[in-house]
Amino acid sequence: MTQNSLMKLLQNKKSIVWLLILIITLLWGYAWVLMKEALAYMGPFTFSSFRFGTGAIVLLLIVWLSKKRFPLRQYWKQLLILGLLQTSIVFLLVMYGLRFVDAGKSSVLLYSMPMWSSLLAARYLGEKLKAAQYAGVLIGMLGLLAILGWDIWEGHSLKVIFGELLIVIAAISWGLSNVYYRLRLQHLPQLETNAYQMLFGTIGIIIATCFTEWNVPIEWNIHSLYYILFTGIFASALCFTVWFLILSLIDMVTATISTLLVPIFGLFFSSLIIGETMSAGVITGSVLIIVGIVIAQLSNKEHDRLKS
């Protein structure tokens, strides 16, 4: 099936679009469990190098098969910066933080990203936040404080708190990458842009790996290979490819809200598969973050509708 025929099918069958969204968010949520489990077999940066190296190769192959010309030489500096912000920094911090933080909780902290995107967009893109958006961001921030504060109250080790802060910084970097993309690269095709930013981001991860985990042993077996191939091919390359097709059919606000299924599935799979327990702080904080993002995004959607 060609891309054009697939797009026509998706345009005519919205139920297929929502089924694909459900499948993608399920896979992304499940990937958090694999990211956590992979740390038993290799260092966090080593795993990220293999994962995104695999993902970048598959994405570049998809771009090559699509036979689309892309002005790489003209935009390589911007793509390098985007790759460092969106892939290198985010997943170096996330994977290191996962050494100390539960997978489900980590997914919730990282997917606080829409709040940081809103604040950064107001600062760098001149977008004015409305009262409902401020309220949504405030509720989400209270959710973050509920998670971090509960762990401090329960006397978790400083390593846990440090890991959680690293993942929050990763969420901020992800939000900053979204703003940078809109400033410098929004006019370029999303699939090709993501393929090349992932390539540059992977190079950054490999450099960090060489400096920090050169002599760290790797245990190769069916499990470690599965974790790398699943997260690299399915969760990174193929899911993103389909996701960018979906983004051309639904509005960005709906897409942002639908990604909140990822931390929900992350919490579910981490509890079901690896037996992680959800504290009252995680449950309360997760609900507040999700509600805050939904309020902020829905108010933004209503604002866009009134302007049109």
Rank of each mutant, 00 (worst) to 15 (best):
S15F: 05
G281F: 06
N4V: 10
E276K: 02
P44D: 11
E276Y: 02
H156P: 03
T277E: 14
H223F: 04
F265A: 08
C210Y: 14
T193N: 11
L199R: 09
T193S: 12
W150P: 08
Y181G: 01
V94E: 08
T193R: 02
Q190N: 12
P44E: 14
W150L: 06
Y75G: 07
S271C: 12
G155C: 05
L92D: 10
Y181T: 07
A237I: 09
V291R: 03
W28D: 00
V101Q: 03
G136A: 11
I264H: 07
L142Q: 06
Y124T: 11
S299M: 03
M42Q: 10
R99H: 13
L260M: 14
L247C: 03
N4T: 13
N4F: 04
L238A: 03
A195D: 05
W174V: 00
N194Y: 09
T259Y: 01
A171I: 09
K130V: 09
I273H: 12
Q197S: 14
M1G: 15
K307F: 13
D102K: 00
K13P: 00
T2R: 12
C239W: 02
I257P: 03
A122Y: 10
L166C: 14
Q297H: 04
W214K: 13
Q11R: 14
W220G: 05
I206Q: 05
L188M: 12
G204A: 02
I264G: 07
G136P: 00
E164T: 08
L129C: 03
G140I: 00
P44A: 13
E192V: 06
L125N: 12
S88E: 05
K105V: 01
I293R: 00
L110P: 07
I257N: 11
G232V: 05
S308P: 00
L9E: 14
M278D: 06
W220V: 08
I206P: 01
E219H: 10
M95S: 15
